[in-house]
Measured scan of single mutants.
Amino acid sequence: MAEQVALSRTQVCGILREELFQGDAFHQSDTHIFIIMGASGDLAKKKIYPTIWWLFRDGLLPENTFIVGYARSRLTVADIRKQSEPFFKATPEEKLKLEDFFARNSYVAGQYDDAASYQRLNSHMNALHLGSQANRLFYLALPPTVYEAVTKNIHESCMSQIGWNRIIVEKPFGRDLQSSDRLSNHISSLFREDQIYRIDHYLGKEMVQNLMVLRFANRIFGPIWNRDNIACVILTFKEPFGTEGRGGYFDEFGIIRDVMQNHLLQMLCLVAMEKPASTNSDDVRDEKVKVLKCISEVQANNVVLGQYVGNPDGEGEATKGYLDDPTVPRGSTTATFAAVVLYVENERWDGVPFILRCGKALNERKAEVRLQFHDVAGDIFHQQCKRNELVIRVQPNEAVYTKMMTKKPGMFFNPEESELDLTYGNRYKNVKLPDAYERLILDVFCGSQMHFVRSDELREAWRIFTPLLHQIELEKPKPIPYIYGSRGPTEADELMKRVGFQYEGTYKWVNP
């Protein structure tokens, strides 16, 4: 592979701008107003304001973009700056750019259920340069409990009458099928589907988006991507930290609602779906819905739930269990780990287990898709061969690698495990991989909904998990304890083995 010439960040961002501006969906010269509902909250200060700053800094926003914060707290732009700027990672050389960014910011205080507050917000936006005809993007960085009041008031008082209007809704989209349907029906009564952007930030990850290209742009994968060759698929999300004093919020939802029903299920769809007619948003989402419709409700015998306990040999936070978090209700049975087996009941995947695993306070930070292939028929190497695996590593250190057998150097035919490896950090030294939120917010500006969740996708996802969630809430089974920093409950490994996964433990990928 030829040595790549190092590029400056300015040059890299210039390439990104060229890609972005050559499309006809990006209205570079139009006025846009980006409204952050819930501007005083954690999500706004840690993710949304920093993301908008990065896009502005790199010249990736339309030229005439204004940012308006809205929340109940009586704040000023200076207050917003004070709480969000520490997350910007701005350099001293960017000081003038930073001043320009905050000059485009404003803030309006108001209630979430008060019509007069929204009329005041609308008047404020109209007073901005060309504000009355601007395109408006409303980001709901809010708890779902206020979605209905907020969307109703936005629709009645704050819509642009000339430009387009788009609304970005953060997960969780309800707690179960019934609450999700209620919320979807409410929002759909106010906005068209092409105006609604239900954001799952995992769909903005580079390697998640790469799944489609790997599958449908490489001839070698087509013939082997089926039940005849693939023994099982494992989708993993692991965090090495616990709730760390923020367990009160987590306890309301648990690990299945927080990660599995959305992030992991979306990745499953991209692995299992048929080739779409095109890369058009609805063509892709149509195929994802077909996959979900082929999955039956989760069966309790295919589920393992766990909850982390303190590690007596650990240090600091590792010595504390979930129930030691003062914000967690006493005696909570909320799971911090889950392993679930699903089956896609169609011709391509009949009988292939899709194993979804996620948890907190585990032994490493990792998100990946792992396809394990069947054993080689007619073994001539005296059971020395391990199964081939194709691994798409989402985070950290984005990579695609194939675990395969090669001859060990020497005189004899002794096979050993090795890999074919594409590590993004080595291959793409001159490429700026956008943060997931950067990519998705740019998608909203461009009107691309491919990486957002459609209402029928959402409904099918909740259909699969709601009976299990209701059973857990009714019966309150005690989750299996696992030690902070471990791989999780051993019962999860036993479940995976029972459905056909072979864990060798003899080879570990190392970032080159």
Score class of each variant (00 low, 15 high):
Ala2Lys: 15
Glu3Trp: 06
Gln4His: 11
Val5Pro: 09
Val5Tyr: 07
Val5His: 11
Ala6Thr: 12
Leu7Pro: 05
Ser8Asp: 11
Arg9His: 09
Arg9Met: 05
Thr10Tyr: 07
Thr10Asn: 08
Val12Arg: 10
Val12Asp: 06
Cys13Ile: 07
Cys13Leu: 06
Cys13Ser: 06
Gly14Phe: 04
Ile15Asp: 07
Ile15Ala: 02
Ile15Asn: 05
Leu16Trp: 07
Glu18Gly: 11
Glu19Val: 04
Glu19Ser: 10
Leu20Ala: 14
Gly23Met: 15
Ala25Met: 10
Phe26Trp: 07
His27Ala: 07
Gln28Thr: 03
Ser29Asp: 14
Ser29Tyr: 13
Asp30Asn: 15
Thr31Gly: 06
Thr31Asn: 09
Ile36Ala: 02
Met37Pro: 00
Met37Gly: 01
Gly38Arg: 00
Gly38Met: 01
Gly38Thr: 00
Ala39Met: 02
Ala39Asn: 02
Ser40Ile: 06
Leu43Val: 03
Lys45Cys: 11
Lys47Glu: 10
Lys47His: 10
Tyr49Phe: 04
Thr51Phe: 07
Thr51His: 14
Ile52His: 02
Trp54Asp: 10
Arg57Val: 03
Arg57Ile: 02
Arg57Leu: 03
Asp58Arg: 03
Asp58Cys: 08
Gly59His: 06
Gly59Tyr: 02
Leu60Arg: 06
Leu60Thr: 03
Pro62Cys: 02
Pro62Glu: 03
Glu63Ile: 10
Glu63Cys: 07
Thr65His: 01
Val68Gln: 01
Val68Lys: 00
Gly69Trp: 04
Gly69Phe: 01
Tyr70His: 04
Ala71Cys: 03
Arg72Asn: 10
Arg72Tyr: 06
Arg72Val: 07
Thr76Gln: 08
Thr76Cys: 08
Thr76Tyr: 05
Val77Thr: 07
Val77Lys: 05
Ala78Cys: 08
Asp79Ser: 07
Arg81Met: 05
Arg81Ser: 04
Arg81Cys: 05
Lys82Ala: 10
Gln83Lys: 11
Ser84Gln: 06
Glu85Met: 08
Glu85Trp: 04
Pro86Trp: 04
Pro86Asn: 04
Pro86Ala: 08
Pro86Gly: 07
Phe88Lys: 01
Phe88Cys: 05
Lys89Thr: 09
Ala90Phe: 04
Thr91Ile: 05
Pro92His: 11
Pro92Asp: 11
Pro92Phe: 11
Glu93Met: 06
Glu94Tyr: 03
Glu94Thr: 03
Glu94Arg: 02
Glu94His: 09
Lys95Ser: 08
Lys95Tyr: 13
Lys95Gln: 14
Lys95Arg: 04
Leu96Arg: 10
Leu96Pro: 07
Lys97Ala: 05
Lys97Thr: 07
Leu98Lys: 03
Leu98Tyr: 03
Glu99Met: 05
Glu99Leu: 02
Glu99Phe: 03
Asp100Met: 14
Asp100Cys: 13
Ala103Trp: 06
Ala103Met: 13
Arg104His: 07
Arg104Val: 04
Arg104Met: 06
Asn105Lys: 00
Tyr107Asp: 00
Tyr107Leu: 09
Val108Met: 08
Val108Pro: 00
Ala109His: 04
Gly110Ala: 03
Gly110Met: 02
Gly110Asp: 00
Gln111Trp: 13
Tyr112Met: 03
Asp113Cys: 08
Asp113Val: 03
Asp113Gln: 06
Asp114Pro: 02
Asp114Leu: 05
Ala115Gly: 03
Ala115Ile: 07
Ala115Cys: 11
Ala116Ile: 08
Ala116Glu: 14
Ala116Tyr: 07
Ala116Cys: 05
Ser117Trp: 04
Ser117Leu: 03
Ser117Asp: 14
Gln119Ile: 07
Leu121Val: 03
Asn122Ala: 12
Asn122Glu: 06
Ser123Arg: 11
His124Tyr: 08
Ala127Gln: 13
Ala127Ser: 05
Leu128Val: 08
Leu128Gly: 02
His129Tyr: 03
His129Val: 12
His129Arg: 10
Leu130Pro: 11
Leu130Asn: 13
Leu130Trp: 09
Leu130Glu: 10
Leu130Met: 12
Gly131Ile: 02
Ser132Ile: 12
Gln133Cys: 10
Ala134Gln: 07
Asn135Val: 02
Leu137Ile: 08
Phe138Met: 01
Tyr139Met: 05
Tyr139Gln: 03
Tyr139Ile: 01
Tyr139Pro: 01
Tyr139Lys: 00
Leu140Met: 11
Leu140Asn: 04
Ala141Gln: 03
Thr145Gln: 12
Val146Pro: 10
Val146Thr: 08
Glu148Asn: 11
Ala149Lys: 07
Ala149Ile: 11
Ala149Val: 07
Thr151Lys: 02
Thr151Asn: 10
Thr151Pro: 08
Asn153His: 11
Asn153Tyr: 06
Ile154Phe: 00
Ile154Asn: 00
His155Gln: 08
His155Arg: 09
His155Ser: 11
Glu156Asp: 12
Cys158Gly: 02
Cys158Pro: 00
Met159Cys: 10
Met159Gln: 09
Met159Ile: 11
Ser160Cys: 08
Ser160Gln: 06
Gln161Ala: 12
Ile162Phe: 10
Val169Lys: 02
Glu170Tyr: 00
Glu170Pro: 12
Lys171His: 07
Lys171Trp: 06
Pro172Lys: 05
Phe173Tyr: 12
Gly174Arg: 06
Gly174Met: 07
Arg175Asn: 14
Leu177Phe: 07
Gln178Trp: 10
Gln178Phe: 09
Ser179Gly: 04
Ser179Pro: 03
Ser180Met: 02
Arg182Cys: 02
Leu183Ser: 12
Ser184Thr: 13
Asn185Gly: 08
Ser189Tyr: 05
Phe191Cys: 02
Arg192Thr: 08
Arg192Ile: 04
Glu193Lys: 04
Glu193Ile: 02
Glu193Cys: 03
Glu193Trp: 02
Asp194Tyr: 04
Asp194Asn: 09
Tyr197Cys: 01
Arg198Val: 06
Asp200Ser: 14
Asp200Leu: 13
His201Tyr: 10
Tyr202Lys: 14
Tyr202Asn: 15
Leu203Asn: 15
Leu203Asp: 15
Gly204Pro: 13
Gly204Asn: 15
Gly204Cys: 15
Lys205Cys: 15
Lys205Thr: 15
Glu206Asp: 14
Met207Tyr: 15
Met207His: 14
Val208Gln: 15
Val208Gly: 15
Leu211Asp: 01
Leu211Ile: 04
Val213Ser: 08
Val213Pro: 04
Arg215Ser: 01
Arg215Pro: 00
Arg215Cys: 00
Phe216Leu: 01
Phe216Lys: 02
Asn218His: 01
Asn218Ser: 03
Arg219Gln: 14
Arg219Phe: 03
Ile220Phe: 13
Ile220Glu: 03
Ile220Gln: 08
Ile220Tyr: 13
Phe221Val: 15
Phe221Ile: 14
Phe221Thr: 15
Gly222Ala: 12
Pro223Phe: 01
Pro223Tyr: 06
Pro223Asn: 15
Ile224Asp: 04
Ile224Phe: 06
Ile224Trp: 04
Ile224Cys: 10
Trp225Asn: 00
Arg227Val: 04
Asn229Pro: 02
Asn229His: 13
Ile234Arg: 14
Ile234Met: 13
Ile234Val: 09
Thr236Trp: 02
Thr236Tyr: 03
Thr236Met: 03
Thr236Lys: 03
Lys238Tyr: 15
Lys238Leu: 13
Lys238Arg: 07
Glu239Gly: 02
Gly242Leu: 04
Thr243Ala: 12
Thr243Arg: 08
Glu244Thr: 06
Gly245Cys: 07
Gly245Glu: 12
Gly245Leu: 08
Phe250Tyr: 13
Asp251Met: 01
Glu252Leu: 12
Glu252Pro: 03
Glu252Val: 09
Phe253Met: 14
Gly254Trp: 01
Ile256Asn: 01
